[in-house]
Amino acid sequence: MVTGKGGTGKTTVAAAMALALAEQGKRILLVEVEGRQGLAQLFDVPPLPYVERRIAVGPGGGEVFALAVDAEAALLEYLDMYYHLGRAGKALDKVGAIDFVTTIAPGLRDVLLTGKVYEATRRKAHGRLAYDAVVLDAPPTGRIAPFLNVNHEVADLAKVGPIRNQADAIMGMLRSDVTRIHLVTLLEEMPVQETLDAVEHLEALDLRIGSIVVNMVRNSPLDDDALALAVKEKLPTTEISKGLRSAGVAVSKELVATLLAEAHDHAVRVGLERENRDRIDALGKQVTELALLPEGIDQGALFDLAEELGA
């Protein structure tokens, strides 16, 4: 499970993670549930239908399949699979029941989405598991705890019956050793706060945190001493002017002042990032850093990220 606040790159990290897991001979399923077609955009393919299809071969030679789960289709599939309700399913659709169940009853929508993940995880093909791993581009941090806990809620609502049994089975899988939740964050106030909140909520629900992925990390060209001076606006002006001049830069008082001000702003930001990093480290979880890719994300960049994650 890969979650993160919007804008932190959780879909990219989920895809990179699937690629990293795709070693020779392995089959990985990469699933999205938010209806955004983020995976299709990322891999630059037409919108994904509700069908598992091969989307990439990982750097290790294994295959990555992608699936965009649509709650309505999942419900019809579910009805058909468990109740053989091909025609009645259509009747339900006609009166707007499917729309109702998948839109207004958010719990049931999430039950269907987690149910599909559960099914894919356990599916057998040719005497072995159909997939060696399933990577879910999960809902954002603000919604992840209720999303994963929905089956527990359902178990409370439906005291008996097939729904109750399935809800219990899914909850069992999510809480077991096979499931890990990875949280993607940037070193900014809001994403870090949401990460801390989500970790607290998830752990209270008995769900297991895998790692915190700190995304888009930029290394500073300034060392710690220089950063400390820059924050206090005490970088040695004369020394820097001299250096600039010897590098052939047309030095003016204004230029030096601007460069020093830029170094100051940068140092302030690095300071904030470090405070945020300390808050992440205080969680005591495994932390993985991914470098900012200034040229944007394409498949090559995904491979780079997969390698960083694999390392």
């Binding site: 060209p221 300034l222 060392d223 220089a226 970088l235 040695p236 020394e239 820097i240 001299k242 250096g243 600039l244 010897s246 590098a247 052939g248 830069v249 460069l259 020093l260 830029e262 170094a263 940068h266």
Partner: peptide, 17 residues
């Protein structure tokens, strides 16, 4: 150029920023 000449790493860093 500053790196190559092994001069003023601080100025070089500020230029990179």
């Amino acid at each position: 150029r500053l790196d190559e000449a092994d001069k003023s790493p601080l100025a070089a860093a500020v230029l990179r920023l």
